[in-house]
Design a protein around this nucleic acid. Structure first.
Length: 433
RNA sequence: GGAGGCUUCGCCUAGUCCGGUCUAUGGCGCCGCACUGCUAAUGCGGUUUGGGUUAAUCCCCAUCCCGGGUUCAAAUCCCGGAGCCUCCGCCA
């Protein structure tokens, strides 16, 4: 939810934001009207309630002969209050609806335009050339005995997979690397629940436009999260946080589930787009004035992680029209996929400013001790399945073997190369053995 | 899965049986003032959050886990839900 005060005081700013998103700017006027209507209804109900309270007090003090008349008046007022409250509820609902209809106000530096107008901020690393026909990650994964798509489909259906042998070890290696780097950077590591109640789901905005994307466990009124952002944001809902000098940072590991409705035919092969994967997600709570700087820091950590994986990538600044509802700005990192001859999204970092926290009611105390809404940010440190796909492709060799980035070796028994037919026997750092 | 207990304005707590005097008690913490050579102690005052109104103050409304209901009137009575705790059953 955007800040209502901003809408009242600077509707033009919000309208401009709507325009750059390619969204309907008349929604701002709808919101303003709903706000005015609600305030009017609130005033009326409050006034009547005050009157009714007084009348109610009078009942008690009334003498026996006055009593029937006073009681009559109190009853009449009670009826009016009830009516006024119903009217107010209607305006409350209308305001909420109008309020929710408006996505976050975009950051000034966000490029205008839509999906194709993302601005590439930088390209890092050499795009590798191969003097042999490149295989895609499914082929390599099968050669290595790392990925089993067929049995994934047999057991769970399309877009499911088994990671086996070196694939399974790669998952843990990536998770370990991601978490240990995050911890070194000062993040609190978190293992978060993947099944959540409606409130955090709604508060993070996933029941709005993305509702079709979400798995629901009907019987228990719980949802499978599509990203660790949900439990990490929900963790502090309805709290007033003690924000010290530093933002509060969590690195959460959890499974993620996505129905991928509406993506039929897209990336049907392999680990690129799956119904379930595991992820290490960074999540920050900070003062609103710090969020832009924190956004850059999250991005830097993402980049350093990919550099450690020796993967060529580019950073793109997502255009306004392609931003999610709650993001004021979003950077994606796209890594090189040789089988596709292009960069594909691997991670994403969003600055939600106060949009998400306002709905989740997460605040901090400012210098005057007043509660204020915090800013929240999230960034993928490692979406594991897709990262495995990328690693297998980028680091492939002619014989089907795969180069292991130095940073991952400690968790893969020190091996420098995964080769078809090999059995990894040591999944611990050689030094620890 | 079953049974019971609990949830009060930062923390602890009184109040709930028996509706109005609750505009919620007291302690701790915190803030201010006074006193004191300084500290401590003491005294006095303040200290939930949100909304409405306002130039600001004042004031008004809501808020006793949440949502409904009964009533002129609900922290208090009734129904539903959540969370925590205990016990039984089952279980990795």
């Amino acid at each position: 939810m955007i800040d209502l005060r901003l809408v009242r005081e600077h509707p033009d700013l919000v309208k401009a934001s709507q325009r750059t998103r390619g969204a309907d700017e008349s929604l701002v006027d709808v919101l303003l009207a709903a706000d005015a209507a609600r305030r009017e209804a609130v005033r009326r109900a409050d006034d009547l309630r005050a009157e009714q309270k007084a009348a109610s007090q009078a009942v008690k003090k009334a003498s026996p002969e006055e009593r029937p008349a006073v009681l009559e008046r109190a009853k009449a007022l009670a009826a009016q209050v009830k009516e006024a409250e119903e009217a107010q509820r209607a305006t409350d609902a209308a305001l909420r609806e109008a309020h929710l209809a408006i996505p976050n106000v975009v950051h000034d530096d966000v490029p205008p335009g839509g999906e194709d107008d993302a601005v590439t901020l930088r390209t890092v690393g050499e795009v590798p050339t191969y003097d042999f026909p490149v295989r895609d990650h499914v082929e390599i994964g099968e050669l290595l005995g790392a990925i089993d798509m067929e049995r994934g489909a047999k057991v769970s259906g399309a877009r499911f997979y088994f990671l086996t042998g070196p694939g399974a070890l790669l998952e843990f290696a990536l998770a370990q690397l991601a978490i240990s780097r995050a911890v070194a950077a000062g993040f609190t590591p978190v293992i978060a629940p993947a099944l959540v109640r409606p409130e955090p789901m709604e508060g993070t905005g996933f029941l709005g436009a993305h509702a079709e994307e979400v798995y629901k466990v009907e019987r228990d009124d719980l949802y499978l999260v599509g990203t660790s952002e949900v439990p990490l944001a929900g963790m502090h809902m309805n709290e007033v946080l003690d924000l010290g000098a530093q933002p509060r940072r969590y690195a959460g590991w959890s499974s993620c589930f996505r129905r991928e409705a509406g993506s039929y035919g897209k990336d049907t092969r392999g680990l690129i787009r799956v119904h379930w994967f595991d992820k290490v997600e960074m999540f920050s709570y900070c003062r609103p004035e710090e969020s832009a700087a924190e956004h850059q820091r999250l991005l830097a950590w993402e980049e350093e992680f990919l550099q450690a994986l020796e993967v060529p990538y580019r950073v793109v600044d997502i255009a306004a029209g392609d931003l999610g509802t709650s993001a004021a700005r979003k950077f994606d990192i796209e890594a090189w996929f040789p089988s596709q001859g292009t960069y594909r999204e691997l991670t994403s970092a969003s600055d939600c400013a106060t949009f998400q926290a306002r709905r989740l009611n997460i605040r901090y105390r400012d210098e005057d001790g007043k509660p204020q809404t915090v800013a929240t940010l999230n960034g993928t440190l490692c979406a594991i399945a897709r990262t495995i796909a990328c690693l297998l492709e980028v680091h492939q060799r002619a014989d089907g073997s795969v180069h292991v980035p130095k940073a991952l070796r400690p968790w893969l028994g020190g091996v420098e190369l995964l080769t078809p037919g090999m059995t990894l026997t040591a999944a611990v750092p050689p030094t620890a053995a």
